[in-house]
Simulated scan of single mutants.
Amino acid sequence: VLPSSIMLAGPGMLLNTFLTSLYVKGAVEVNHEAPTWAVAALLSAILSATDPVAVVAALGGLGAPEKLSAVVDGESLLNDGSAVVVTYVARDWVMGANAPASEKYCPTSPPTVGCICLFLLQVAGGGTLIGIFAGLILYYWVGLIHSEHSYVLETTSVLIVVYATFFSAEAAETSGVLATVTLGIMVSCMVKNQLSHAGAHGHHMVMHQLCYMCNHIIFFVAGVITVRFMWRATGCAHDFRSPRAWAELAGLYVALHVSRALMIALFSPFLRRMGYGINLKEFVILTYSGLRGAVALIMGLLILQNDYIEPAVKQMIAFHISGIVFLTLFVNGLTVDNLYRWLDMYPASPYKATYMRKIYSKIEGKCQEQSVKPMMRDWFFSDLHFEK
């Protein structure tokens, strides 16, 4: 699953950004003219960060295999880091000469290839190294406290290291998301074997409860931010009173699905070689599961608060980000379970029912030999008719 997720989150995200930029450049207007390639790349990079919380929850409730959910969730976790890098590069490009060099990661406009590579190495490589280092620290620490037989201490230690890793990576100007994901991989491979049975159970319960609360808070905040971006009169061309803005939004919603489908289709041979591969039905679910959520909204807020970007550009980006988040959550998130059932993703084998009947028949026969027949020979049950 990990190679498939890396393929979709790295090269796949870049291809998705490029294809979406073609639509933005050709169909969206800013100040009654086509946006620059920098603006198109900025909006496309933000919308390339997937957040399939609702889809993963629905797939889990439907009993989908872990492979499918892991690919969808793994892509979302890993592409946050790559999408942030591309977004920051495109933001520096949009700001251009209006912003001082101290406000940009790459001082030149447009950013040079060398600067982009160094920034990618800093964010992605630095975050990964911090995650590995934190995982080693947690591994040795849990080994030391294992003799205390305190599951509370074990669970608290894991929780503290998780948050410390994220904030340390962000303070070092690397990717806190990638650092935390790397730490999670280290925990799955090494640290979980150091936890006691009670500690592993406590860790599982605490983390699931935190995820449950955070997911609900994210959806609530997403609704508040969406109303702020879309349903207020701004005086710009992109607000709720503009029919063209709504038409652009509808076209962008379709374009995102088309670009994602093309991306997955192009990389499907590599996914088949490097990972488990996908069939046609899984291809449809992967395409439909590209929801946008908290990450896109947060990056939209950062753009909206930037003083070096034109107000019309900021409002256009904020409007389309909020609209896409709203549409993907309410359309894709609420209908993915019906699509899953309609596709009949993993139909039961007709031979399985036959084998199960034979197995149950053998179990019944063994039970009769071990329990019923001795009861038939017992004088206490001599007046019972077991044949019925």
Rank of each mutant, 00 (worst) to 15 (best):
F133K: 00
V158F: 03
F119L: 15
T165D: 08
Q122S: 15
L195R: 02
I160D: 05
L129P: 03
V191Y: 00
T165F: 06
I145N: 00
L118W: 13
L121F: 11
L121G: 13
A124G: 04
E173R: 11
G131S: 05
V123M: 11
E173H: 15
E154N: 03
Y151P: 06
W141N: 05
C189E: 15
V142N: 03
Y151E: 12
Y163F: 14
L129Q: 05
V158W: 00
I132C: 06
G176E: 08
M186E: 03
T180P: 03
N193P: 00
T128R: 03
H146F: 08
H197F: 12
L159S: 13
I132F: 15
V158M: 14
Q122H: 14
G143V: 01
T165K: 02
C189L: 13
I160N: 02
I185G: 01
W141H: 10
A179G: 11
I130W: 07
A169L: 10
T180H: 04
Y151H: 15
T128E: 05
S188N: 14
I132Y: 08
S157C: 11
S175Y: 05
T165R: 04
V191D: 00
E170Y: 07
I185A: 09
G176P: 05
L178K: 05
S196C: 09
G135N: 02
S196Q: 06
W141Y: 12
V161Y: 01
E148C: 08
L136A: 08
S150C: 09
M190G: 01
V123C: 11
V177C: 08
Q122G: 12
M190W: 14
C189S: 11
V158H: 02
L153C: 09
T156L: 12
Q122E: 13
L159F: 14
E170Q: 11
G184A: 06
V152W: 07
G135R: 01
K192E: 14
L178R: 07
H149I: 08
L118S: 12
L183Y: 03
L195C: 07
L129H: 02
V177I: 15
I160M: 14
E173F: 10
A179W: 06
I160V: 15
G135Q: 01
M190S: 08
S196G: 10
A124T: 11
V187S: 00
V177Y: 07
A172Y: 05
H146D: 06
I132L: 15
G131M: 03
V187K: 10
V191P: 00
L159Q: 09
L118T: 09
G127E: 04
A172D: 07
S147D: 09
H146R: 12
L195Q: 04
V162A: 14
